[in-house]
Design a protein around this nucleic acid. Structure first.
Ligand code: FES
Ligand code: FES
Lengths: 141, 141
DNA sequence: ACATACCTGACTAAAATGGTCAAGTTTAGA
DNA sequence: TCTAAACTTGACCATTTTAGTCAGGTATGT
């Protein structure tokens, strides 16, 4: 079970953005340099973040991106959903009555994986961008 | 972030095994049929479970596998560790002072991912095979 | 002896990942 | 008005991982 770069970068980039967008729009080029993420890749990611109304874009010279919401209202859940980083622990289709392996009934571990999924998602729902901004000292206790 | 089949199957197979090994050793063939998992794949998995002393093997006709410990002492952590299903949320090497992207310092989201990793591992440490045996009714509340 | 079941290692097709590359459009500022 | 900065879009691709298969063993109860 591992986190993909796409999800990791999305959060990194947004934290960076949140720190600097009070003054000016932040260009992807700057984020790319500061965080060491490929510019082309960032563009893919921000395209999705924009579609999900997490950021706004300002075109042209001196343009860039700005947060579209209060950092407190941007949960990790929202970010991950935007870039298609989804938590998938079960193999089967949830809606269906059928289990994995094509059996007619859910497998013996289905409930376990479902619990796990909830457990992980809870973490994402309880973390907002705001939490990450004040975070540097706090977690160093 | 998704769970791999290897990890999922390992747990499924062990739950199946735990249910039946009171009477006789359980053959992989039986598990394969009951759970719908490829026999050849199961052999790979059980080879690792054996190396990690989670199961014992009994060769020859009427042979099979038996748990090597009390179900209560087999945590999901142990199973996942055995089959190399590891939780990896950070990109960097933990031991190193260096961050991901080869920077000299840990990135701005490092602590977050580290927290997440702990959060997930806690789940695995608190679940034993025993929990899964009584599980069918309980989770249906 | 022979069928059953464990054991081992090599191999591979398909999918996912983590990007790159190319060709735009928009707009601020000189 | 011209130009460079910066967003926009979509195709493309190399590498790695996944989820197995396959082919050959070896041990042992009956
Ligand atoms: S994971 Fe849902 S039925 Fe097996
Ligand atoms: S994840 Fe550890 S430094 Fe970025």
């Amino acid at each position: 079970m591992k986190l993909t770069s796409k999800g990791r970068y999305a959060v990194m980039a947004l934290v960076d953005l949140a720190r600097f967008d009070n003054i000016n729009p932040v260009s992807l080029r700057d984020i790319s340099l500061r965080q060491g993420i490929s510019l082309d890749y960032l563009e893919q990611i921000f395209s999705k973040l924009k579609k999900n109304e997490i950021v706004k874009s300002i075109r042209g010279t001196q343009g860039g991106y700005v947060l579209n919401k209060n950092p407190n209202d941007i949960k990790l859940t929202n970010i991950f959903h935007a870039v298609d980083e989804k938590v998938k622990t079960v193999q089967c289709k949830k809606e269906s009555k059928k289990g994995c392996n094509g059996k007619a009934t859910k497998c013996i571990t289905h409930n376990l994986w479902d619990e796990l999924e909830v457990h992980i998602n809870t973490f994402f729902e309880n973390k907002s961008l705001k939490d990450l901004l004040n975070n540097n000292k706090e977690t160093r206790v």
